Computed example of a mutant assay.
Amino acid sequence: MCVDFYRLWPVYVSLLIALLSLLIPFATPEMASWAMGEIGLIERSTALFYVGTAVLASVAFARSAGMMRLHAGFWILLSIVCFGEETSWLQHEFGFATPSSIEARNVQGEFNFHNLEGFHGGKFLGEEVSSPALGALLSAQNLFQIGFGFFFLILPFAAQVPIFGSLLTYLRMPFPGRLIVSTVWPPITVTLLLAFFTEGQIKDLAAETRELFYAAAFLLFTGTLALTLRDPVAIERTMNAN
């Protein structure tokens, strides 16, 4: 099922945000430090977006049935995991100690999994020294970005191919439409380029901002899905569009 906006204004807002993102290199060290960090504005906002995603996916879950309910349940679980990893499972908020078994293997000494040795820094298996390119590809961050790119870019285009579109319809799998794709990618593209061409604190700020935009994409998609499932006519229209 194609999930999409019915108006163009989100695309225009996205383009404005992308333009504003070009100001990141002009951030002062004080501004960057205030925005970043484990309890900084960007991380807090990212975590809240994942909470919103879980809530909206739960609404979609309640309004759906069968295979569609399974897809909505996946988004609930995914957003909870992303929220947990973003906040180190609320360690940043409650300040509890990291278990020693995890602290010894976590590169930041935190209670999360994406910073564990073997998942952090571009290596999936500790002994994978002979194939560093593959190890870098299988880092936790890169696996997330590959999955994000597949769902929000490759899948919408693949759905236009009749055989793949028919498969998605059979599975009742919701996927983003053209306007959502056009809304999601401008700010992410800008921050990707900034992270590639800058160094130091500005590079980190661009990367943190990109993670915020990832979470915003989740929120937009699940919110649109929940709204679409509220309207039987809209469901029929989107199914026919496939």
Rank of each mutant, 00 (worst) to 15 (best):
C2L: 14
C2I: 15
V3W: 04
F5T: 04
Y6L: 11
Y6A: 05
Y6K: 14
L8G: 13
L8E: 07
P10K: 04
V11I: 11
Y12H: 10
V13R: 06
S14T: 11
L15T: 12
L16I: 12
A18P: 15
L19R: 00
L19H: 06
L22R: 04
P25D: 08
F26S: 15
P29W: 12
E38R: 02
G40T: 12
G40D: 05
G40F: 06
E43K: 09
R44W: 08
A47V: 14
A47F: 07
L48D: 00
L48S: 08
L48Q: 00
F49T: 09
F49I: 06
G52F: 09
A54C: 14
V55C: 04
L56A: 13
A57Q: 04
A57Y: 00
A57D: 06
F61E: 08
A62D: 09
A65Y: 15
A65P: 01
M67W: 14
A72M: 07
A72P: 08
G73I: 02
G73M: 07
L78Y: 06
V81G: 05
C82Q: 12
E85N: 10
E85D: 09
T87K: 02
Q91F: 06
Q91T: 06
E93F: 15
F94V: 14
G95P: 07
F96T: 09
I102L: 13
E103G: 04
E103R: 12
N106Y: 07
N106P: 11
N106T: 10
N106K: 01
V107R: 15
E110G: 01
N112T: 05
F119A: 11
F119L: 15
F119D: 01
K123F: 01
K123T: 07
F124E: 01
L125S: 08
L125K: 03
E127L: 10
V129E: 15
V129A: 13
S130C: 05
S130T: 15
S131F: 13
L134A: 10
L134P: 02
L134I: 09
A136W: 01
L137G: 12
S139W: 00
Q141N: 12
L143T: 05
L143Q: 08
L143S: 06
F144L: 14
F144Y: 10
G147S: 07
F151M: 12
L153D: 03
L155G: 00
I163D: 06
L167K: 10
L168Y: 15
L171C: 11
L171E: 07
P174A: 12
P176G: 12
G177Q: 01
L179Y: 13
V181G: 03
W185D: 13
P187S: 02
I188N: 09
I188H: 04
L192R: 04
A195Q: 08
A195L: 02
A195T: 11
T198S: 15
Q201T: 13
E208I: 05
E208V: 03
T209C: 06
R210G: 03
R210V: 00
L212S: 04
A215C: 06
F218R: 08
L219Y: 12
L219G: 03
L220D: 08
L220W: 08
G223Q: 09
G223P: 05
A226F: 02
L229W: 04
D231F: 02
P232G: 08
A234S: 13
I235K: 15
T238S: 09
N242C: 11
N242P: 00
